[in-house]
């Protein structure tokens, strides 16, 4: 269980996350929605340990959480002048893995010998996802993973997310495409004004659109 307690994050005087308390169960896909600037990416960066914060983020007995997270950020960055395969090999070595899962490589059909600089937005997102899949993490954070991805890859991505769920992983998924969330997620949280404003179970998914329209 990924527990977040009294999480506060400030950017200067701007209070982005306000006393956030939430728990994410393993073996489930949890959707996070919110308007632009609601704090979704900040929350993910805090969980990954990329930002300092006040409060506590923990999972069972794991001491250093960030070593157990596979993260696909919304804003992708790759080393310039690097080939796709080199990027994956770097992650493979960093995670101490013997090899990269060939099935994942094949499913995304990427030209791994080409420079990532020449990849399209969707291809970059796919290779970032492939990178996050290397090594066995307990938590996967996917921030807008469907942005710019073609239909086939979209389906592959969904299959991979469901596989992670079956493996008992905790998956946090953020997307502005509500249908993707309702299709994949076991529950959805709405982040508004720095707090987890609402929690939707599948039975209440019909309310999301209406609530988003009135959200400020």
């Amino acid at each position: 269980m990924l527990n977040i307690e009294k999480l506060n994050k400030y950017y200067g005087k701007h209070h982005v996350l306000k006393d956030l308390n939430v728990s994410f169960a393993p073996g489930q896909v949890h959707g996070i929605i919110g308007l632009n600037g609601a704090g979704k990416t900040t929350l993910f960066n805090c969980i990954c340990g990329l930002l300092n914060y006040d409060g506590s983020i923990s999972q069972n007995s794991i001491k250093l959480l960030k070593n157990h997270i596979g993260y696909v950020p919304t804003e992708l960055y790759f080393f310039p002048r690097t080939r796709g395969i080199e990027y994956l090999q770097l992650i493979q070595h960093a995670r101490g893995e013997q090899n990269i899962d060939q099935q994942v490589i094949d499913s995304f059909e990427l030209p791994l010998d080409e420079y990532i600089d020449n990849y399209s937005t969707g291809m970059k997102r796919k290779i970032a996802f492939m990178g996050a899949m290397i090594g066995s993490s307990d938590i996967y954070i996917l921030d807008e993973p469907f942005n710019g991805v073609d239909i086939k890859s979209n389906l592959v991505l969904k299959q991979e997310i469901l596989k992670l769920k079956q493996q008992g992983k905790t998956v946090l998924l953020s997307s502005h495409i509500i249908s993707s969330l309702t299709e994949l997620c076991d529950d959805v949280y709405m982040l508004q004004d720095g707090r987890m404003d609402k929690h939707y179970t599948p039975a209440a998914y019909g309310e999301i659109e209406g609530d988003m329209m009135t959200a400020s």
């Binding site: 990954c48 340990g49 990329l50 960030k66 070593n67 960055y77 790759f78 080393f79 960093a94 990178g131």
Partner: peptide, 15 residues
């Protein structure tokens, strides 16, 4: 900063 963040996500602090 961006490349350091990428590396921090990939590996342990020691690495």
């Amino acid at each position: 900063t961006k490349s350091n963040d990428l590396l921090k996500r990939m590996m342990t602090p020691k690495g």
